[in-house]
Write a protein that binds this DNA or RNA. Sequence first.
DNA 1: TGAGGTCTCACATGTTTATTTGATGTCACC
DNA 2: GGTGACATCAAATAAACATGTGAGACCTCA
Lengths: 209, 209
Amino acid sequence: MMISFAIVEDQPELRRNLVEWLNRAPGLNCVGAYPTGEEALKQLPTLYPDVVLMDINLPGMGGIQCVSRLKQLLPETDVIMLTTYDNAEMIFDSIRAGATGYLLKNQPREELLQALQQVHAGGSPMSLKIARKVFNHFQTPAKHGSEIEQLTNRELEILRLLTKGYLYKEIAETLKVALATIQTHVAAIYKKLHVHSRTEAAMKFAGKE
Amino acid sequence: MMISFAIVEDQPELRRNLVEWLNRAPGLNCVGAYPTGEEALKQLPTLYPDVVLMDINLPGMGGIQCVSRLKQLLPETDVIMLTTYDNAEMIFDSIRAGATGYLLKNQPREELLQALQQVHAGGSPMSLKIARKVFNHFQTPAKHGSEIEQLTNRELEILRLLTKGYLYKEIAETLKVALATIQTHVAAIYKKLHVHSRTEAAMKFAGKE
DNA sequence: TGAGGTCTCACATGTTTATTTGATGTCACC
DNA sequence: GGTGACATCAAATAAACATGTGAGACCTCA
């Protein structure tokens, strides 16, 4: 079974080397190589590659945005991100944008080859550290729960209304207490949650309870 | 560098086979093998294993709960879950409970060996399908949202910062534009989302994107 | 070339929020 | 009968926010 792939990478040397090296592998067929996201978006939709290797640091539109658009045009195509850094934000932005795999550039080429095959076999290849970060991302939200538990019932009640965007005034009316009381409670909530604004508090509360 | 590990698995045959097979590998040293989570929790805290292989389907407390407690007692120990099924709920419950890796049982033993080494090297080994599911988990909430899609990229960028609780001033500095520009964008965002405060916007945005 | 969308900035006004200090009354618990 | 946690209220200030109007620069697309 032949896997067709394309590469988006702005460094000419690296791009050519990768194409050449990967093409040598049996079962792989390169159908395109582009220096920018814009160029790739123009050409790829008619080529229907199985997999695209996408550099994140592209001049112009950037790799993440490119993935986002590419997936709209070619939902069936899998995209593997390539990057030098293991920045957490970039990882999750990429995944959200539709990336299927995420690899660091400083890895042996054999792994890149494996990754291509893995993607095509229904997997999501990622580098060691990336995998760990992804796992950790699920674990952190459990920690915030503890702070919420510090709140009294009254404070929880108020936080619920804060989260819905009620004005202090409206909360006061709803609970039939003075505005000043709400202010005091809010201050207490912020202190316990270690935040300094309604939105931060709401975000900590979101999903919980 | 010697990696010490333990196994929690209720099927006696499988348990013995795994211990025997893994012990044969250079660099691996089995310090314990238990049929139940209860037994493991009693013995393991004094043994400080580097890695624990944990069956999910355990009689009694179950593997996921066992991980949860084990990680409280031994935060430094990595746990790899072993299971026959790739049920999504179990995967995420396990990860939240503190698992560092997640493997399907029907895999070649070489992969199990690799997984042990990967965990110790800072990775999070998972089977092909598991990895894909984990990735998909991030993407699904991104699907055809709502009013959020009306936002321009710039507005999204600002909304992201708003959601994190940044002050207008800080957003302006971050994006290197004037405070007035942020105000204008925020007004545009509120209009498109039909809200009148930062928190309401943040709540509509939460999870989405 | 002109219309429409986006991003940028300025000026202005009133409202809301965040934070502090301090005080009162209630209830439970030792 | 005192201690502590909780809910309530007051007063005051600085900061931040929500909202409006207007306007120049740029790009794209018809």
